[in-house]
Design a protein around this nucleic acid. Structure first.
Ligand SMILES: [Mn+2]
Ligand SMILES: [Mn+2]
Ligand SMILES: [Zn+2]
Ligand SMILES: [Zn+2]
Lengths: 138, 138
DNA sequence: CGATTAATGCACTTCCATTGCATCCAAAGT
DNA sequence: ACTTTGGATGCAATGGAAGTGCATTAATCG
């Protein structure tokens, strides 16, 4: 077993050929991907398989879902420490309004927030919209 | 003209009967609404009309769209100062994972964030998931 | 190898958003 | 008051993406 297979197995995800390909591809991306992105790249594979692959990945703490406001979910590989049903990706997400790419700024944590009395926080999601460094060239 | 008509007109939105009804209803809501919510309440009206009504409201700074992660957009009345294509609702949004209601916490601004060099901020959106005060009763 | 269980592929369904077009209405001009 | 006219509305159709059922294929285990 190679490194990816070992990793997937450690997440209780059976390392099938398709899953290995998808994971390797995801790991190389610098920005989050949509299901359609996957569909375009893996044109030989069925959309349903990709759908269930990314769902399995999400459920097992391998990727996290990002909602950048565009309505279509995007996915990116998790940082370490994410587990089944328990994600720890409290970092900021940047969505570029020009190139429509969404990226994880894993070095930028979501600031602490105060809430009114009685509210209990489970999770947070901060999306910053603007121009990414590539697009912000004047 | 009553107060609502004057307000709509001030936003360059013609105060039709339907728009007045919708605005009045929205103003009474404590939580953000979906298009389907509107459809259920205004059962006599056509879905398309409601769709275009809320779209017009959004485009003219009367409501803002909230994406709480559930995939279905929600809408709530804007704070003062929002204009055509220019919203100033940098407040926190709370989404309750139990009752699925989403509310604007207009008193809670989004904290300042630092970004990597080269990134330009245009807008931010912070959604906090958890239990609202009504649901967090143990 | 045979039995068992999970993954895949295909077809279909569902859920909303969105659009085209005909009709209606209300403000503005005569 | 009548006509004109552009925007608002309603209905029907389309579009796009998520999700489901089921038969088939592949992987795993004894
Ligand atoms: Mn991320
Ligand atoms: Mn709000
Ligand atoms: Zn960009
Ligand atoms: Zn609640």
């Amino acid at each position: 077993m190679n490194e990816i297979e070992i990793f997937l197995a450690s997440k209780n995800v059976r390392p099938t050929a398709m899953r290995i390909l998808v994971f390797r591809w995801l790991a190389k991306r610098k920005t989050a991907v949509t299901l359609t992105d996957m569909e375009v790249f893996f044109e030989k594979s069925d959309r349903t398989t990709l759908y269930r692959t990314i769902k399995t990945f999400e459920e097992n703490g391998i990727v996290h879902r990002i909602n950048d406001g565009g309505g279509i979910p995007k996915y990116a590989i998790c940082a370490e420490g994410c587990r089944y049903g328990e994600h720890h990706d409290l970092h900021l997400h940047f969505h570029c309004t020009r190139c429509d790419e969404t990226s994880c700024l894993t070095d930028h944590q979501i600031p602490q927030v105060n809430l009114p009395k009685g509210y209990l926080v489970e999770d947070m999601n901060l999306v910053v919209n603007g121009l990414c460094d590539s697009c912000n060239v004047d």
